[in-house]
Design a protein around this nucleic acid. Sequence first.
DNA 1: CCGTTATAGTTACATATGAAACCACTTGCA
DNA 2: TGCAAGTGGTTTCATATGTAACTATAACGG
Lengths: 155, 155
Amino acid sequence: MTVKRKPAPATAEHAPLQLEHFLPYRLSILSNTISQAIADDYQRRYDISMTEWRVMAVLARFEGLSAREVAERTAMDKVAVSRALARLVAAGRVDRAIHDDDRRRSVLSLTEAGWTMHDEVAPMARAREREVLAKLDDEERAWLTRILDKLLPAG
Amino acid sequence: MTVKRKPAPATAEHAPLQLEHFLPYRLSILSNTISQAIADDYQRRYDISMTEWRVMAVLARFEGLSAREVAERTAMDKVAVSRALARLVAAGRVDRAIHDDDRRRSVLSLTEAGWTMHDEVAPMARAREREVLAKLDDEERAWLTRILDKLLPAG
DNA sequence: CCGTTATAGTTACATATGAAACCACTTGCA
DNA sequence: TGCAAGTGGTTTCATATGTAACTATAACGG
């Protein structure tokens, strides 16, 4: 007769991951918590998504980028960038021109309205970052920077 | 006559965020890179999403949880958990029973097939974690753990 | 008991996202 | 030139996700 046995308990036999000590999981929770807090700030005030804000943030730093360059710098894929740009241009926050020498490329920059919004959102984002970093002391902050430098691809 | 002026350049006047030094952004990139690497491992082999894997991971650790408890432990919302469970049960990887005393609650556990898959995926996930941590020395790893403990909500 | 309120979980709808196909333009090379 | 291959960007389609509404059950208070 067939007996439906309970699966083996979660012991050494199966070595389940302990998520609460598993780096990828912890990073994911931390990152999402922080990004969502910032997003809440600006989504309340403006009708703008996280991807759109990221595009605006890079255009604030680097004027005249093409869409592909924005994608590179934001680590977003080009479809996401294309869509974000469509909304930003429609909302009058980004200006899109065509590159003189290569008519495929766009030349992107913030409009005055875009800058106005940027200048309100950027300080809020920085404030959130400070809130997080306030939980650490100087020594920990220094190590965190160093560790991220080593772990991040381009660092 | 109206002259279309170029928006002010990205100088101190506007204080744009420097994403490459902005903690929330850097964490996001790092977290996504790592999680995606792990996901690539198991999505290639099994037809399973990141959310489904997370549900399996907590069920491997804690048998008999309800869906709500899974949601709490994975920091996912209950709808996402509900959908992940529907697929996992359909695929024969999770067994869903009804709680004796409260017929609203489900009682969840991995099936034999679920355990088999778990036992193949968990080592791959751990291997990816090791790859990341290998970029750090002992001292840095210790600081990272300490820093995450301080930054994470429940820590 | 009976109605109100709360909770576990699912469903429906609207929106977001990613992969692949696609269009426009440019480049490289015969 | 002119055509094959490559690149910037958009569109399409299929899937994923979040919010709110809903169903079923339980808990509570009279």
